[in-house]
């Protein structure tokens, strides 16, 4: 069986909801069935074969080629399988996913990994705002899984994040870890302003002091050797990421906050 390949064959005028194109929802369908499925695009519904050239038949291994930033909801609620995207992806990539893998060669728009519960998303580019966050009005962001971003992320990375890991090889935007409930965000590059704003619990791990410093809402708890860090770095070794090459460290300066709230979150900075 060859990967089910969906090659975008037009410049999109409107956004397209691709939430139906997942291994779960395509299970048991043949190419003709898939071609006839209708996707919402603006005020229209369009059959898949009007948008994509279709080849291959393995619905557990789906490839989007010539992909566009207007393809939203790719990998929506997927539980297994693999989706590979050549090009960019739109909003809500991997929303609600509980398992499987998504890898993209380009950039993603907002709400990547929104409220995801498991699995892995790897973005070989930049991600927009609200990576791993909760939808507007909702209280829990991602509750499991790993998001790896080789480039930069926008603002509000991990907003309301509850569990799981976001690993950013580049820079993170403003309000990184805002309203975070738990989980881990690690950033190899710089972080923007208001790091950990309204953070309740959780860990933000940095290899160097942020350029804007630590905000006044975080108190310095001193320098420590934390035993869990070597375990965490060991778990990174199997990832296809720069994090696998980061030399393990356990000596960190610990800042607790946001003290404007319950103040149980922490920013750990390598020393």
């Amino acid at each position: 069986m060859k990967a089910l390949t969906l090659k975008l064959k037009m410049d999109l005028a409107q956004r397209v909801d691709c939430s139906r194109l997942t291994p779960d929802k395509l299970a048991g369908k043949d190419v003709a069935d898939i071609a006839a499925m209708e996707l919402v695009s603006g005020r229209l519904t369009l059959p898949v074969d009007q948008l994509f050239d279709i080849s291959g038949d393995d619905v557990n291994d789906i490839r989007f080629e010539n992909s566009s930033a207007k393809l939203d909801h790719i990998g929506h609620a997927m539980t297994h399988g693999r989706i590979t995207i050549e090009g960019d992806a739109g909003a809500y990539l991997g929303q609600f996913m509980t398992g499987g893998n998504i890898e993209i060669t380009g950039n993603t728009f907002i709400y990547t990994g929104c409220e995801m519960k498991g699995g892995q998303i790897k973005i070989n580019g930049n991600a927009g705002d609200f990576v791993g966050a909760a939808r507007s009005g909702y209280k829990n962001g991602m509750t499991g899984g790993i998001i790896i971003v080789t480039g930069n992320t926008g603002a509000r990375t991990g907003d309301h994040m509850r569990r799981g890991m976001i690993l950013i090889e580049g820079n993170a935007g403003d309000y990184c870890g805002s309203r975070m409930i738990s989980g881990t965000i690690a950033v190899l590059g710089e972080v923007g302003k208001h790091l950990g704003y309204a953070m309740k619990r959780g860990t933000i791990l940095l290899p160097k002091m942020p350029q804007h410093g630590i905000t006044a809402n975080f108190n310095d708890c001193g320098s420590h050797t934390l035993a869990f860090l070597p375990l965490m770095f060991a778990s990174f070794k199997k990832l296809d990421s720069q994090f696998a090459k980061v030399e393990s460290f356990s000596r960190v300066q610990r800042y607790a906050g946001d003290l404007g709230g319950i103040g149980m979150g922490e920013i750990l900075v390598k020393i």
């Binding site: 569990r163 799981g164 860990t203 035993a227 869990f228």
Partner: peptide
């Protein structure tokens, strides 16, 4: 105390007088 999920296993970090 702080919970950490690493590789699908949950660990607890409990603050004690010699560290954690």
């Amino acid at each position: 105390q702080i919970s950490k999920m690493i590789d699908g296993k949950r660990y607890w970090r409990i603050p004690v007088m010699d560290g954690e």
